[in-house]
Design a protein around this nucleic acid. Structure first.
Lengths: 108, 108
DNA sequence: TTATTACTTGGCTACTTTGCCAAATAGTGC
DNA sequence: GCACTATTTGGCAAAGTAGCCAAGTAATAA
């Protein structure tokens, strides 16, 4: 594998890494509905605000979300709505797995 | 956030986690073309075979790929081709980021 | 200016992931 | 049976990630 391929794969892997956390998926789902300030997302997630802020910065660095300061609050919104298309397939993968698990237990 | 939502998000995050590594992305890309045995993938990735085998087991546990033993070799193939749809959007995210970086440097 | 609110950053510990090596397993052929 | 090849598994050290607290920054308001 050459250096260019290596770099391309690492860049792509970073986008997946940014989405590979339950709290960050919740953030993306919520921002898909409408923009939210950090305090609202903190409330939903139920973690320390500093923790949520760090999750937001991971998503922002990956280029998935955007921030805008308005007064004291910082509002975040989805920058790349195409990531939502991922979710259908992920759901499909999970359903297939669940079905196979079920069939393993309930043998005919 | 209730326990059910928590569980749903954790399950989904696992699928993204499985894809969040350059070597595993290469594996998915290659298996999208055709099935490959572990030795071929090891050759492409250029790591220890035990390392590649562990990457394959991560993808298999996530339900993304399938294995089939034929003689001495184990052949892997893509089980959920829908994950390939992710790649277009990831490419879009990366291009947008790159363009913005470029504009930051080359101010008008 | 000081106080207050909303958020981010630094620092630390606990936990997880990665990758190599060595050992174990499973087929094949003699 | 034995040797050989392809793959998986266990164990360990190094690197990376997550989350909390405390300290820092920035906007607002008194």
């Amino acid at each position: 594998m050459n250096a260019k391929t290596q770099a391309r794969l690492a860049t792509r892997a970073n986008v997946f890494k940014a989405l590979a956390h339950p709290s960050r998926l919740l953030i993306v789902e919520q921002l898909a509905q409408k923009e939210h300030c950090v305090c609202e997302l903190t409330e939903m997630i139920g973690a320390d605000m500093s923790t949520v802020s760090k999750h937001l910065s991971v998503l922002k660095s990956a280029g998935i979300i955007l921030d805008e300061k308005r007064g004291l609050q910082v509002y975040y919104r989805l920058k790349m709505p195409c990531v939502l298309r991922f979710f259908d397939c992920v759901g499909e993968v999970i359903e297939t797995n669940a079905k196979e698990q079920w069939e393993l237990v309930n043998l005919p």
